[in-house]
């Protein structure tokens, strides 16, 4: 190499490898978030479905026994988890579009760390989910949702952890289906509905038959939903909150592991 054309060969900066990795995550995140800052279409689309449930399904819970005081206090925390499962769970579709068009390929040939590509994208999904969760919470306050500031903050933090996991899993799925959107949606729906229905977001699982309650105990989202309800009730010390945090951390760890593995192996 006698020429001096490669001005861009990256030397590890003053912050070293870890600093460079964070810089790369930041770059990917900044690129992903830039269109959302102009037209927050992803943010809005992700909120439509939960809003439908809040408007058309929430009122049916009005007289239900076993929900505690206000049915909103019971229903809204679950709906936040549902946004994570459905909205964030669809994030991988964006990667499919990128793979089909050629821009993913272009970025994969840069020296950017593959893990940074995954984590930067995931953080954008998690932030979107946080904003959606905060908006729904504020929106529901006038309808009788009591806001315990510390509890809501903890609940939203838990939601972000779940968002990291679900977003990464969705990316992992998108990278695994090799440019087939129909396969992506099929697997996604196949996983989502059972997880949603057995997690007790819509109706209390305890009210159903014993086998369903037993099944729901194997669903990590059940623990997350229980934790969100405890936190939104202001009960930060509840055991359910601890189990939920563990479940959320497990979802995030598995999601990140699969997502990073998928991105590292991505061949187009």
């Amino acid at each position: 190499m006698t020429t001096t054309t490669a001005t861009a060969v990256t030397a590890p900066g003053p912050l070293g490898r870890a600093g460079n990795f964070l810089r790369e995550v930041g770059l990917v995140f900044a690129r992903e978030i830039s269109p959302e800052l102009r037209v927050p279409i992803g943010l809005i689309l992700g909120m439509l479905q939960p809003l439908v449930f809040l408007v058309l399904f929430g009122p049916l819970l009005g007289g239900m026994p076993g929900l505690g005081g206000s049915h909103w206090q019971w229903f809204v925390p679950g709906i936040l988890v549902m946004i994570g499962m459905f909205g964030t769970g669809a994030a991988g579709y964006g990667v499919l579009v990128e793979a089909g068009g050629g821009s993913l390929e272009r970025v994969l040939v840069t020296p950017l760390s593959r893990a940074a590509m995954l984590i930067g994208r995931t953080l954008k999904e998690a932030l979107t989910l946080l904003v959606q969760g905060a908006l729904i919470t504020l929106l529901m306050a006038p309808f009788g949702l009591r806001i315990h500031v510390a509890g809501v903050a903890a609940g939203l933090a838990l939601l972000v952890v779940v968002g990291v996991g679900v977003g990464s899993l969705s990316f992992a799925l998108a990278l695994a289906v090799k440019r087939s959107p129909s396969l992506f949606w099929a697997v996604q729906q196949f996983a989502q509905f059972p997880l949603l229905l057995t997690s007790g977001v819509l109706l209390p699982v305890e009210a159903g038959p014993a086998w369903l309650a037993a099944v729901s105990r194997f669903n990590p989202f059940t623990y997350v939903v229980d934790a969100e309800r405890a936190l939104f009730a202001g009960d930060l010390a509840a055991p359910a909150a601890g189990y939920g945090a563990l479940a959320a951390a497990a979802i995030a760890a598995i999601g990140l592991a699969l997502g990073i593995r998928g991105m590292r192996r991505a061949t187009l």
Partner: peptide, 23 residues
């Protein structure tokens, strides 16, 4: 194929590409 992402601005894509390469 097309190297640029649909929803990104032309100049932004170029700047990010440069920064991905360590500029």
């Amino acid at each position: 194929g097309r190297g640029s992402g649909d929803q990104f601005r032309v100049r932004d894509e170029l700047v990010f590409q440069g920064r991905f390469h360590g500029l």
